[in-house]
Nucleic acid binder design. Structure first.
Lengths: 269, 269
DNA sequence: ACCTGAACACCGTTCAAGT
DNA sequence: ACCTGAACACCGTTCAAGT
């Protein structure tokens, strides 16, 4: 992967955390038909969506842009930096809850979780990227801040908030990862989700190790793979929400407050 | 990645789901100094642990084994297959709960979650692999079956079990992924976890988008990064466990059963 | 300021040969 | 049955040069 690196670069924390004035490269669109970062990032997202992370290369991207491979390097330092830019770009697709002080935090959490999942499934290359980078781009921060605000409104004691955040959004990340991976496999095999399931099922049937898991799937309910997934996602999310309510109830019980409502952001002691 | 493929192979579901009698390649150790699958897989795990997924190549592996690159291809079909074998091998490091009918399912769940997390953090290359493969190897199935048995003992209605499983183990997957990624970055930067945090913190301080998240971290409690992480992990896990208990309580309330105990594996209605 | 071409140091994998 | 060598079709990136 890091091939041909003659003088090895020091590891960078993130494109977003360079020192110096923003970036030495131009960022805005000067000429209408010239290259610029936005155009490069947009083309990258297009290619990543179409062919996946494994097939994405600087040379293919350059070809897509009608340009030589090395031209792109005028605008981005490395392929890794470019991928980090593309990642933050698609994080912008997550619809964030507006300022609605009377809205139920549970509904906002459900909406935000659904949006996050939608984005992961829509761009199967995103999940591996999220696992590689620091995720401190502007869109990543907006998403993180929105998630934090929603969970804060549940009224948990301050020290529990980051844990509750992890319970919700790391779950969605894991769930979305599996889902996106599954869909990618179906696409590669050229069959639909249910047909792919049937094929795997057929290969697995009759082997003892798999018997118990297959039984379990039959209890799950729902006719199609998509329906089973949706049911599991909803169940799991309601499970975490119920857990947050239970933890808040315990804390409120200690403090003598009522079991519902919750007084916004819990400040530290 | 799939470079040099002259006649393109059909996409394989998994090494573990080949048709035909097991595998056409030899698997056992014939000669004491010859190659075999086990030795190759063990060397792969060693290299992956030492240098990471990005630096792992068939040529480097061959060098480690004192052999030519193409020798390995006698025992495995592709690099992807080899990685799938290595993945399942380390899944075997997860200690599974024994048959203890009187044990508390919560304790067993805590133990299994901690083991899964330990494995993910111990082998940072595992998380990306889990996101790429079907995970139907023998160790993967043993783990999945153990997880299922534990969650079944919580006494949830049948259709809720897979959702609860997802809530627990997809969370651990996401959490462990972030943690492993962070540790890899520290290693690459050549600094400890707390020093790396200090460095990122310094670069981020003063930028508005980051202010709220930094505030939040200060509420989290704990002195070191590791302590904060442990606290969040425990909080999140207790949150999900509380959620499972709440869901069971609701279901039991409907059915007229008591709030505790739970009668083992919930059969479907 | 922006883009190109050639080159370097790698990849995974095929194929024909060796033993 | 097992292993090698050479080759093919790719990579990311450097560097010197062009406009």
């Amino acid at each position: 992967m890091a091939a041909g690196r003659r003088a090895s670069r020091p590891p960078r924390t993130s494109v977003w955390l360079e020192d110096g004035p923003a970036s030495r490269r131009r960022t805005g669109a000067e000429q209408p038909d010239g290259l610029d970062r936005d155009r490069i990032v947009a083309a990258s997202v297009r290619l990543l969506d179409a062919d996946g992370l494994a097939k994405f290369s600087m040379r293919r991207l350059a070809a897509e842009l009608g340009v030589t491979a090395m031209s792109v390097y005028w605008y981005v330092e490395t392929k890794d930096d470019l991928l980090e830019l593309a990642l933050d770009a698609v994080l912008g697709e997550i619809a964030l809850p507006g300022e609605a002080p009377d809205a139920d935090w549970r509904d906002q959490l459900r909406q935000l979780a659904a949006e996050y999942r939608r984005m992961l499934v829509g761009h199967p290359w995103v999940s591996p990227m999220l696992g590689r980078y620091l995720n401190v781009g502007p869109r990543a921060m907006e998403f993180a801040n929105a998630a934090r605000r929603v969970v804060e409104r549940a009224g948990l004691p301050g020290p529990l908030i980051t844990g509750a955040l992890a319970a919700v959004f790391q779950f969605v990340y894991g769930f979305g990862t599996v889902e996106a991976n599954w869909n990618s496999r179906c696409r590669a095999a050229g069959v639909g989700s249910d047909e792919y399931f049937r094929q795997v099922f057929a290969r697995v049937r009759g082997r003892d190790e798999y018997a118990a898991s297959l039984d379990l799937m039959e209890q799950r309910g729902g006719d199609t793979v998509d329906e089973m997934r949706q049911r599991d996602f909803d169940t799991a999310l309601e499970c975490v929400i119920a857990g947050i309510e239970a933890m808040r109830g315990r804390a409120a019980g200690d403090a003598g407050a009522g079991p519902d409502g919750g007084s916004a952001a819990g400040g530290a002691p």
